[in-house]
């Protein structure tokens, strides 16, 4: 049984098709990255999971139960993109307040608060008001509040936006701890390296539709292929004749201003031919490098857009 099963989820806001038949699954102990440009439908999907969006069609199951069944969402922990904390309250008071809303009381609440403070590494600031905390401290507390009730499913909406590298590392550590504890984690992010580092699988969503889902390697193979990318930076604009010659000799070679890119599964054969062609055309080479395809390339390939567009 999957922790989260989403089948044919559809939602329209007026003329905007926010979700269009989304199918996704998430297993216990798995981190699924949700990538998509702004307006792709990520937030609508997360809000549908939390019950804040009433979908037109489709079904969500959490731990095998329909999400709209009473108590089904009790297994859900939600960490919003905003710092959704009470600034005038202390870290401990925030944890206590949200803990009560999450149904905790008495000794379990006290234990959860202590665990949350430790989890966010805020034990020494427990009684300080949250308002003057650094962005990183607030983000850590934001995450700790969302998992106070020890949920089996955690929704993380951009949990590392705008924070310093140290705090980001700590949040990565927190996410790792949650995964080790067996939580199923849906993680939306704009940071490709974060997705590559943390996520077991990645789902790319665009125009309300999941257009690819799989591990990083699966996505690369199914989109760009197993090839590497050769990037040559010329000392001037790549002449049209040279670009045409290379495109004829080496299919996939694309010139763009002073740069030429070539995706190939045999870089050792392609690079000498490239350099020879540049020399014949008397175009100098400033730099040459060999890149492995990234999720960024996959994303660009699938959506035609940069992630931050």
């Amino acid at each position: 049984m999957k922790a989260v099963e989403i089948r044919g989820l559809t939602k329209r806001f007026g003329d905007l098709q926010a979700l269009s038949g989304v199918d996704l699954e998430l297993a216990a102990g798995e981190v699924l990255g949700l990538l998509g440009p702004n307006g792709a439908g990520k937030s609508t999907l997360v809000r549908a999971l939390t019950g804040r969006v009433r979908c037109d069609a489709g079904e969500i199951r959490l731990g095998g139960r329909r999400a709209d069944e009473p108590g089904a969402r009790d297994t859900l922990g939600y960490v919003p993109q905003e710092i959704a904390l009470y600034g005038v309250l202390s870290a401990e008071q925030n944890l206590r307040a949200f803990g009560r809303f999450l149904g905790l009381a008495g000794e379990p609440l006290a234990r959860a608060v202590a665990r949350g403070l430790d989890f966010a590494r805020l034990g020494d600031r427990a009684r300080d008001a949250v308002e003057p905390f650094s962005g990183g401290m607030k983000r850590r507390l934001n995450l700790a509040v969302g998992i106070l009730h020890d949920p089996s499913i955690v929704l993380l909406d951009e949990p590392t936006v705008g924070i310093d590298p140290q705090s980001r590392e700590r949040i990565y550590g927190m996410i790792g701890e949650l995964r080790s504890a067996g939580a199923a984690i849906l993680h939306t992010t704009h940071y490709m390296e974060e997705a590559e580092r943390l996520c077991d699988r990645v789902a790319v969503i665009d125009h309300g539709r999941v257009i690819a889902v799989g591990t990083r390697d699966e996505l690369v193979r199914s989109t760009i292929g197993a090839g590497k990318q050769v990037v040559v930076d010329a000392d001037r604009q790549v002449p049209a004749e040279l670009a045409a010659e290379l495109a004829a000799q080496l299919p996939g070679a694309v010139a763009d201003g002073e740069r030429l890119r070539l995706t190939t599964e045999e870089p050792a054969l392609a690079i000498p031919r490239l350099l020879a062609a540049f020399e014949r055309a008397r175009v100098g080479v400033r730099d040459l490098r060999l890149d492995s395809p990234t999720l960024e390339n996959v994303f660009l390939h699938l959506t035609g857009r940069e992630l931050r567009e």
Partner: peptide, 13 residues
Amino acid sequence: ESGTLDRLLSTRI
């Protein structure tokens, strides 16, 4: 505006 309402409504209340 701060997002706490969204968070509250995703709890049991």
